[in-house]
C-alpha cells in the first residue's frame, strides 16, 4: 500500500508543478513506483513539464466519470522502466467536474499499485484544493522566500492542520537566491521555518537550469550535475526516510575579509 503526498502552496507560481515533477522523478530514480496526479483541471501543465503532453488520450475527469479505466488514462514515462506514470488533468472542464469523494476513491485505488502518489495541487483554497487534498496522507507545502508566498503558505498550513487523515505538512523553500538572503534582502531559511513552525524537508536554489529543463520537458532531477537536481533528489531521499543534511548554498569564493565583515555585522 503506497502513500499519497499532495504538493500545495496556496499562492500560484511558487513552483508546485516543478516540485511535483521533480520529486516524482527523483523517487522513480530511487526505484520506487510513482504516479503523478495533476489536479489542476482546466489549467494542466504537469504533462508539459514532464514532456508527456502528446501521449495523453484520457484524463482525470474521464476516469472519475467512468468513461475509461484508470490504466487507460495513465501515461507512462518512457525514460523509466515501468516506474513513473502520470494521470493528467482535463483541459476542457473546470474544477467542479470532480468531487473530493471521487478523488479519494481514485487515489485509494492508485495506492494499491504504486509506492507513491504525488498529487499536484492547483493554486488557491477552493474546490481544486479540496479535491487535491481529499485523498492525501501527507502534504508538502512549497513556498518561496517572499512575504506573500510565506503568508499564503501559513494559510494553507492552517487549512491542512484541520484536514483529517493528513499528517502535519512539511516545507520546501524554493527559489532561494543565496546572495539576497545573505544581504538580508530576502527572508532567510531560519526565519521562514520558525515563522511557519513546521518541519523543513528541503531547500532548492533558484537555478536557471530548472526553467531550461522544464521547457524541454525534462525534469531537472534527471540531470545529476545541477544544484537544484541534487536538492530534489535529497527531498526524495528524505521522503524515503533517510536523514540527509541540508545543502550548503554558499559559494566558495568568500574570503577572510568578508567573514570578518559578517562577524561585525557590516553589510
Amino acid at each position: 500500500m503506497g502513500e499519497a503526498i499532495v504538493i500545495t502552496s496556496g499562492k500560484g507560481g511558487v513552483g508546485k508543478t516543478t516540485t511535483s515533477a521533480n520529486i516524482g522523478t527523483a523517487l522513480a530514480l530511487q526505484g520506487k513506483r510513482v504516479c503523478l496526479v495533476d489536479t489542476d483541471i482546466g489549467l494542466r501543465n504537469l504533462d508539459v513539464v514532464m514532456g508527456l503532453e502528446n501521449r495523453i488520450i484520457y484524463d482525470l475527469v474521464d476516469v472519475v466519470n467512468e468513461r475509461c479505466k484508470i490504466h487507460q488514462a495513465l501515461v507512462k514515462d518512457k525514460r523509466f522502466d515501468d516506474l513513473l506514470y502520470l494521470l493528467p488533468a482535463a483541459q476542457t472542464s473546470d474544477k467542479t467536474a470532480v468531487q473530493p469523494e471521487q478523488m479519494k476513491k481514485l487515489v485509494d485505488e492508485l495506492k494499491q499499485e504504486y509506492d507513491y502518489i504525488i498529487i499536484d495541487c492547483p493554486a488557491g483554497i477552493e474546490q481544486g484544493y479540496k479535491n487535491a487534498v481529499a485523498g492525501a496522507d501527507k502534504a508538502i507545502v512549497v513556498t518561496t522566500p517572499e512575504v506573500s508566498a510565506v503568508r499564503d503558505a501559513d494559510r494553507i498550513i492552517g487549512l491542512l492542520e484541520k484536514e483529517e487523515g493528513v499528517e502535519p505538512p512539511r516545507l520546501v523553500i524554493n527559489r532561494i537566491r543565496n546572495h539576497m538572503m545573505e544581504n538580508g534582502d530576502m527572508l532567510d531559511v531560519d526565519e521562514i521555518t520558525t515563522h511557519l513552525s513546521i518541519d523543513l524537508i528541503g531547500i532548492v536554489a533558484d537555478d536557471d537550469e530548472v526553467i531550461k529543463a522544464s521547457n524541454h520537458g525534462e525534469p531537472i532531477a534527471l540531470n545529476p550535475n545541477s544544484k537544484a537536481s541534487i536538492a530534489y533528489r535529497n527531498i526524495a531521499r528524505r521522503i524515503l526516510g533517510e536523514s540527509v543534511p541540508l545543502q550548503v548554498l554558499e559559494e566558495k569564493q568568500k574570503g577572510v575579509f568578508s567573514k570578518i565583515k559578517k562577524f561585525f555585522g557590516v553589510k
Binding site: D152, R155, G158
Partner: peptide
C-alpha cells in the same frame, strides 16, 4: 496552537494562547 493566516480564534472570557498569532490571523 498557532493561529495562522485566515484563522480566527474567539473566546468569551480571557484568552491564554500558548503559541503565536501569525500575520493574517
Amino acid at each position: 496552537k498557532i493561529v495562522r493566516s485566515g484563522q480566527v480564534l474567539e473566546v468569551p472570557g480571557d484568552l491564554l494562547l500558548i503559541g503565536d498569532v501569525n500575520p493574517g490571523g
